[in-house]
Simulated assay, not measured.
Amino acid sequence: MPLVIRPRTDADLPALGAVLVEQQAASGYPHREPLPMSPEDFVAREGTLATWTALLDDEPVGHIAVLPVLDPAVSREPDLSRLWMAGHGLPAERLAEIGVYFTATRVRGQGIGAALMRTALDHVAALGLAPCLDVIPTGSAVELYRRTGWREVGSTRPAWLEADAPDVVAMVLPAAS
């Protein structure tokens, strides 16, 4: 059965929570162990602009979300907001964060993550927003983002970051010229 990417439903949450936990050892994401909430609550963030589930054979195997970037005055992570705003030269309300992005370990290398990212980026563009993300610089994620056009705009140490983790890298995807 072909890959299907569709809006996430609440019925997807148990399977996506299991996928999140399963892939954590290989990817290092999320960067907190144990999570301060259930895996399902981690996936089902409040305030998202949009969320999608990737399915193979009707089984959830990946997820991505688009979240608003809040003005630093009200953001729980004001330094990230400031870095993204400076990186794009835009106010927070013109930005969107790509997050809660993961795929099952067993489907890596099949283009599922890339398809999820395309879906999210298309949505961000349709909203007239500029994309941002943050990443812990472990493994190959930063290099993958660089190869696909993302640009580093700084690093910061969010309150949720564990003491032994490196600073979070803030990245933006410049508009195509």
Rank of each mutant, 00 (worst) to 15 (best):
V61M: 00
T53A: 04
L55E: 13
R82A: 14
A96N: 00
D122T: 11
L49T: 01
P68D: 04
T53M: 03
L83S: 00
H88T: 11
R94D: 09
V61Q: 12
A115K: 02
P68L: 06
I98F: 14
G109S: 08
D71T: 03
L116T: 04
A126P: 10
A50Q: 07
Q110H: 09
G89Q: 05
G87D: 05
A126M: 15
L83E: 04
V66D: 01
A126L: 08
L83T: 06
V107H: 04
A126H: 07
F102I: 08
W52V: 06
G111M: 03
D79R: 15
E97A: 14
W84I: 03
A120K: 02
F102D: 04
L95K: 00
G113T: 07
P91E: 12
L80N: 07
L121P: 01
P72Y: 07
L49W: 11
G113A: 12
L95S: 05
A54S: 00
E93F: 13
L55I: 05
P78D: 02
P72V: 05
V124I: 14
A65C: 13
A125T: 11
R82E: 09
E93G: 15
S75D: 14
D58E: 14
T53V: 09
E77C: 10
L83H: 07
A73E: 15
T103C: 11
L95T: 01
E59Q: 15
M117S: 15
M117I: 13
R94T: 05
H88I: 02
R106T: 10
V61I: 02
G89T: 00
R45S: 12
R118H: 14
D57V: 11
P78H: 01
L67T: 06
T103H: 07
A73R: 06
P72G: 09
F102V: 10
D79E: 15
L83Y: 10
E97G: 14
P60Q: 08
G87K: 10
A125M: 07
D71Y: 07
S75T: 08
H88L: 09
G62D: 06
V74H: 12
A73H: 04
D58M: 11
A86E: 08
A73F: 02
L121W: 08
T103L: 03
R118E: 06
R45D: 13
R106H: 08
R82K: 15
E77Q: 10
H63R: 00
L49M: 13
V124G: 01
L95N: 09
T105C: 04
L121A: 06
P91F: 06
M85E: 13
A92N: 04
A92G: 09
G111S: 03
M85Q: 10
T119E: 13
T119M: 05
M117H: 12
L49H: 07
E46C: 09
A54H: 03
A125V: 10
L56N: 01
V74K: 05
D122Y: 00
V66W: 10
L55H: 08
P68R: 05
Y101P: 02
L127I: 10
V69I: 14
A73I: 05
A114Q: 11
E93M: 09
V107Y: 08
P68N: 08
